[in-house]
Design a protein around this nucleic acid. Structure first.
Length: 439
DNA sequence: TCTGGGGTCCTAGGACCC
DNA sequence: TCTGGGGTCCTAGGACCC
């Protein structure tokens, strides 16, 4: 049986949410702005028609907004999250397998429907609009990537009535001929440029490129895209919610910040917010990353970005411990003289609370061992050239056997290896290299 | 002058292990 | 007595997504 994957996507989602409570804004230009009212992150069709692009800074479109009486909202993520839940719950009642992909999109496995596909999708579309008030578009195809293509057309072309079935290969061919590479799911601006350098500008050209060549020249992700464009499933349906890998809290500041103290305050606030999220999900974290940066539009000399990761001895979820490490991180990377514009923290190495003991033990053991090693490694690499020679220890505990080796490809390898046979030979027998004179 | 926030996955190279 | 090959783990950085 051939597969049919549907992508259900809410139309101009944030705008549709706001319109639910302001029906008079139907058929009027409306936009929703990001935090700090910095950029337009959602536009109604009427606003798009005025030439307001996605993620455009508000100050660049202020004149359009004034001239055409565009209604402007600051974003209200609590509201959007609520309405998203309603849409997803509706879909789960209508289809057996639903993978929630983002706040406004879900993939549905409709493989069992056969020739009723189109009719079912149309009634599904009506249901969602009726029950939630949010208009959606639906694209169907044998793979997720093609379903994205189908959805795009369903949304843009009024003739489709908001639903497009692209399971027929001849239709796929026609659609891909008219699509640019940059409009394919997974191809961003960088890849689009790189592909163009290889003479690939349309989706059909990418589909017909050799997957092996694409993998060599680019990467495995793009190879999957090629396969998916051919109708071969390379991305599976996953209806289990993914386990969380990280928790971020960050903000750009309203004004530039130069002093350490306000940065410390901002980061302290991020830590308590993130720790709340952490506990809410019943997770603990094993490392915390702090980052500071100047505006990405700053001139090269005034540009500064840095981060500091603290690996905790024990995975935790309490604010004070995280705060302590975060503050140390801020101080480590703060540099006087820069005008900071953004800061944030990321909690990594997340584990469920109940796995606490197991995690703690294995991490501790590993860490104690590597701390002893690291000192030696740092010392030697500072003398010999970074990465020239690899050192490790065999065995754990009080009697590690030191061992050296090197990456063969390392350019520094040959010279160092030849110049230092005695050092290496000596380290092998079990005394730490601290005791040696290193040339 | 003013340019979002929160995620994921992959790769490369260093570190570690057998 | 001296030395190596090759796998896996880890992390920073890059690219992408909504």
């Amino acid at each position: 049986m051939s597969r049919s994957i549907a992508l259900v996507d809410c139309n101009n989602f944030y705008v549709s949410c706001e319109r639910l409570f302001a029906p008079h804004l139907e058929r009027r230009p409306v936009i929703v702005l990001s935090n700090n009212d910095g950029c337009a992150v959602a536009r109604s069709n009427e606003a798009k028609a005025l030439g307001i692009g996605m993620a455009v800074p508000f100050h660049e479109i202020r004149h359009l907004v004034q001239r055409h009486g565009v209604t402007v909202f600051s974003s209200n993520y609590a509201l959007y999250g609520d309405l998203s839940d309603r849409v997803m719950n509706t879909l789960e009642q209508l289809a057996p397998r639903v993978e929630i992909y983002s706040i406004d999109e879900a993939f549905l496995d409709l493989s069992m429907l056969g020739d009723q596909l189109d009719g079912v999708c149309r009634s599904m579309r009506r249901c969602v609009t009726q029950w939630t008030g949010i208009p959606v578009s639906i694209g169907v195809a044998p793979t997720k990537t093609l379903a994205k293509v189908a959805n795009r057309i369903a949304k843009k072309s009024p003739r489709t009535g908001g639903v497009l079935d692209l399971t027929d290969p001849a239709l796929q061919e026609r659609a891909l001929r008219r699509l640019e590479t940059g409009d394919i799911w997974g191809v961003g601006s960088r890849l689009k440029r790189k592909l163009a350098q290889c003479g690939i500008t349309s989706a059909i050209q990418l589909r017909d490129a050799s997957p092996q060549w694409i993998r060599r020249r680019f990467n495995i992700v793009l190879e999957r895209t090629v396969l998916e464009l051919r109708g071969i499933q390379a991305m599976s349906m996953d209806d289990a919610p993914p386990t969380r890998r990280s928790i971020t809290t960050s903000r750009t500041f309203g004004q530039k910040v130069t002093d350490l103290e306000p940065l410390r305050e901002a980061v302290a606030h991020f830590v308590s917010r993130a720790a709340e999220k952490l506990r809410h999900h019943r997770l603990i974290t094993g490392s915390i990353l702090v980052f500071l940066s100047t505006s990405r539009f700053a001139k090269p000399g005034a540009l500064y970005r840095n981060s500091h990761t603290a690996t905790l001895l024990e995975a935790v979820s309490d604010t004070p411990t995280l705060l302590e490490h975060a503050m140390r991180g801020v101080e480590a990377i703060y540099q006087k003289g820069y005008r900071f514009n953004k800061a944030g923290i990321i909690l990594l190495d997340l584990h469920p609370e109940e796995n606490y003991q197991a995690t703690l033990f294995s991490d501790l053991e590993k860490r104690q061992r590597s701390e002893r090693l690291m000192k030696t490694v740092d010392l030697l690499n500072s003398r010999l050239g970074r990465g020239a020679i690899r050192f490790g220890a065999e065995g754990i505990g009080d009697n590690p056997v030191w061992k050296t080796s090197a990456r063969r490809k390392s350019p520094a390898y040959t010279t160092c290896w030849k110049e230092l046979p005695r050092v290496i030979a000596h380290d092998r027998v079990g005394r730490t290299p601290y005791e040696r004179d290193i040339p």
